[in-house]
Every structure is written in structure tokens, then in C-alpha cells.
Amino acid sequence: MKKIIFTLFAATALSMAIGTSNTEASNYTVQSGDTLWKIASSNNISVNQILSWNNLSSNSIYPNQKIKVSAASTTVATPTKPAVSSTPVTSVNTYTVKSGDTLSRIARLHSTSVSSIQQLNKLSGSNIFPGQKLTVSGKVIATPTTTVKVPTAAPTVSSTSTYRVVSGDTLTNIAKRHNTSVSQLMSLNSLKSSSIRIGQVLKVDAKSATGSLVTVSNPVITPPVNSGAISTLVTSANSFLGTPYKWGGSAPGGFDCSGYIYYVYNQAGFSVPRTNTTGFYALSSPVSSPQIGDLVFFKDTYRPGISHMGILIGNNSFIHAGGDRVQITSLNDKYWSSKFDSYQRLNVMK
């Protein structure tokens, strides 16, 4: 009888140990030099997921901090016989990427591997973006529906039919901003010289005469041409997440938006000068099909005209030194989408 009781006790203890180890596997102890981006990459999850699972309000972490790296339940497993799932299985061929998706999650959902999805879709990296169509294989197991707040539609850039001149404007930068030419602006506005004045209202497109509004939809992100250098750039940019904002700063002790761009681009091997947002705008060219690593410009933030910038990193997001620190922000953000100006590519990257 004692032998039977001991055997039952040992089996119970073993099952509890197994359940506990599963729970511990969802945690990670922060090491010196870690960043949320590095931890997220190692565990095939996103920074936003880590922030949500750990109720973090910023990207700041410290050594020996316990971080949850999966949404696994912390309930201790019981040695019950697993039930046979009656969840329906549906065969699919394509999948549309949603906000928060990763290749790892999509692979698990469709019972395939990340490498298989990369091969099927000719992906050189793991960067994907909402709305992207991916070819998948195998079976997709329908999972319970989780209510998720759907972000607003991707920002669109409305190229208005007229433009009001602000301090510092020239016909050249106005033409560049609206994808037109100086000569066309002069013709549309019957100008005999390039002189303009603050407050002057200019027609900026050929359809202005009829009063039509031209809407430019948010372009689809294309794969980077120089994926090795771009990967280095994005890795360098992410390594400074949480670095304090410092006006005029251009070193790891603190950055402003242009100083941050200057530092990480040079770290990635692109020789760019230390200049401000207007200077970077002049050193780049508009792109209709932006790629990861391109610049995102914003206008009329703390001053009229081009006044802020960041780096496009995919998933409809950009990384920048803004607010009180270096951070990743969605282009769907209400404030930043209202200030969006254009996607540009530095001339040194061509």
C-alpha cells in the first residue's frame, strides 16, 4: 500500500514539474547589453508584443529583469488526457498579413516553416507589412477569434491643389515636395521670376485650374536593393531604442531626429553629413515605392515646413528620435499621419 501511495505522489510531482517548466519557458532574464528589439528578434516576436505582455510603457529594461516572451498561460498543467480537437481544418494557398503578424506566427498558423514561406515568396529577410499577400502551404487550423482593435487605414498623402508659401520656402523645394518642376510652377502661376513671398498661394499641379483634388495613396513597400547594408542599418537603428532625446544630439548619449539619422546611417557605412531635417530633405529624392531604410519626412510639427524625420522599418512603422526617446511609431498614428509629407531616399543609397 505504501508503495502505491509513493508511486502516485511521484507521478503527481513529475506532472507538476512538467507544467511548471512550460511556464518558465515563456520567460526571459534580461542580460547586459540586451534591447527589446534584440530579445524580440531572438524569440521571433515583435517589440509591441513584449510591451503588451509585460505591461511596459517604454522600451527601457535592465539586467536580470524577467520578461515574458510568449503569451503562454501560466496555469500549471494537469496530467489529464489531451482531448481530440474538433477544430475544422481548411486548405489555403495565400494569406494576407495583419498588423502584429510575424513570419513565425504565420508559419505556426499554417503548419509550415519560416524558411518555406520565405522560399515560396522569395523573401530575403523576415520583414513583412500589413496587407501583404503571402503564398503559404499546408493546412491552416482555425483558431478562436480574438477581438483586436483594428488600426485606422494607412495614411494617405493628399496633394492639395494649392500651397501657401511659408518662411524658408523656395520654388525648388516646393516643386520637389509636390513632384513637379520649377518651370511648371512658374507656368501655372504666371510667374516671371522665381521670387515668392510668405503667405503667397501657389497652384502646385496641372489639375489646380479645374479645382480637382489629387490623392496619392500610400505606396507599397518594396524589398531593399542592398539588403545586407539595409539590414545593418536597421539593426543599428534598433540598438538605440530608448536612447533619450537631446536637442542637437548626434551620439549614443542622446539624439535629436536628424542627429539620429546621421549617426545610424554612418554606422551602416553610408557617408552622410551632420545636417538638419531640411538638409537631409535636400540630399534625398522622392520615391513612389519606398523600401525599408528609406526616410520618412514630416512637416509642420514644431515649425512650418519639413521639421521631423525617421527611418522606414516595415510593418507600416518608422523608427525615430521623437518625444522623449528613440522609439518605433506606426504610420497610422493619428498625429504623425496628419503631419506626413513624403518618402525619400538618400542620394548616397542610389
Rank of each mutant, 00 (worst) to 15 (best):
Y343M: 11
I306K: 03
L233M: 01
S217H: 12
I311C: 09
I61L: 08
S195H: 08
V204I: 13
S208M: 00
Q65C: 06
S285E: 05
N189P: 03
K66A: 00
S181T: 15
G259S: 03
L171D: 05
P223C: 06
L51S: 04
P63V: 15
S42Y: 04
S126K: 07
G228A: 15
G254C: 02
V225K: 14
S91Y: 10
D101Y: 08
A83I: 14
T94S: 10
N55M: 06
Y335P: 03
P224H: 10
T29L: 08
N43M: 01
F340R: 12
L188V: 10
F6S: 08
V220F: 10
R274T: 09
T277M: 00
T143H: 15
C257F: 07
S250R: 13
R274I: 07
N226T: 09
S99A: 08
K176A: 14
S285C: 01
V140N: 10
L213H: 13
S124T: 07
S271G: 04
L191S: 10
T29K: 05
T180S: 05
D333P: 02
A17D: 04
S187T: 14
A268T: 05
K192R: 10
N238Y: 10
F240W: 13
I292E: 07
S217V: 09
F129T: 08
G305S: 12
S338G: 07
G138E: 08
D324F: 02
I313V: 14
S288W: 05
T172N: 13
G310P: 02
A268C: 04
T74C: 02
W247L: 15
I319M: 06
L191A: 01
V182Y: 04
S284R: 01
D341C: 12
S159V: 04
S212K: 14
S208L: 01
S217L: 07
R164V: 15
V114D: 05
K66V: 09
P130S: 09
Y95V: 07
A71K: 11
I39W: 02
R197S: 15
S194R: 10
G279Y: 01
C257N: 10
S194A: 14
V136C: 06
S288C: 06
I198F: 02
N315Y: 03
T23I: 15
T96D: 00
Y263K: 00
G228L: 12
N179T: 12
V234I: 15
Y335S: 10
A17Q: 11
S73N: 13
S99Q: 13
I67V: 09
K203F: 06
A209I: 13
V234P: 02
M16S: 11
L14N: 07
S73Q: 06
S289I: 08
I45M: 06
S258P: 03
N22C: 09
T112S: 12
G168C: 03
V287C: 05
G199T: 12
N64V: 05
M349S: 11
N173T: 09
G199D: 12
I328D: 08
S158C: 01
S307W: 07
K98V: 12
Y263F: 11
A72R: 15
